[in-house]
């Protein structure tokens, strides 16, 4: 992953569900333009935050061996603005994970208040139905930066996988 848009996982159940935190800061320059005098987190970037939360959950379910790519936004409904200083929580659940793809549901909340519902599908692109070939290198999980998000969980997961 080249660009990290969430701050940390706070809950992680391998192959099932995870929760991550994203702190929204006025230091994010796009907020100065979105909108001048009324900074709110763009909804597209809430989808991105959920895609990263869900995508890492889906990737970890296959030990980061698959190239997990966002393939479809099944649902994205927003109920309130997110402003600088807010800390949002992203809860993601794996509904289905198959050899070719995975489906997730997700909720964004702020201090328990529902902000958004975002359901996604991810493709394991090497298993795509069209038989298209992709580069061998795993360009999705190609460095370890994103693993810092899982700092509280990775050692625990490793021991789980060893069994």
């Amino acid at each position: 992953m080249r660009w990290i848009w969430i701050d940390k996982f706070v809950e992680f159940e391998s192959g099932k569900r995870a929760a991550a935190i994203k702190n929204v800061s006025m230091a994010e320059e796009h907020l100065h333009d979105h909108f001048p005098g009324f900074p709110v987190m763009p909804e597209a970037l809430m989808i991105e935050a959920m895609a990263q939360t869900s995508g890492i959950l889906v990737g970890e379910a296959r030990q980061f061996q698959e190239k997990v790519v966002l393939a479809k936004i099944n649902k994205a409904v927003f109920f309130d603005f997110v402003r600088p200083g807010d800390s949002i929580r992203l809860d993601a659940v794996i509904e289905t994970v198959a050899p070719e793809a995975a489906g997730t549901t997700g909720k964004i909340t702020r201090e328990g208040q529902l902000i958004a519902e975002i359901d996604l599908m991810f493709s394991h692109v090497d298993q795509n139905l069209a038989g298209i070939e992709f580069p061998k290198d795993n360009f999705v999980f190609d460095d370890n930066t994103f693993k810092s998000l899982l700092r509280d969980f990775l050692s625990q997961n490793k021991s789980n996988h060893a069994h």
């Binding site: 479809k72 198959a98 070719e100 489906g103 599908m121 139905l129």
Partner: peptide
């Protein structure tokens, strides 16, 4: 589109409690 076919399969599996090989 192709991803929708998988989406349909996933939803059919849930709705009817069956397993469908692609």
């Amino acid at each position: 589109e192709s991803i929708d076919f998988l989406d349909v399969v996933f939803r059919l599996e849930k709705a009817f409690d069956i397993k469908i090989a692609r």
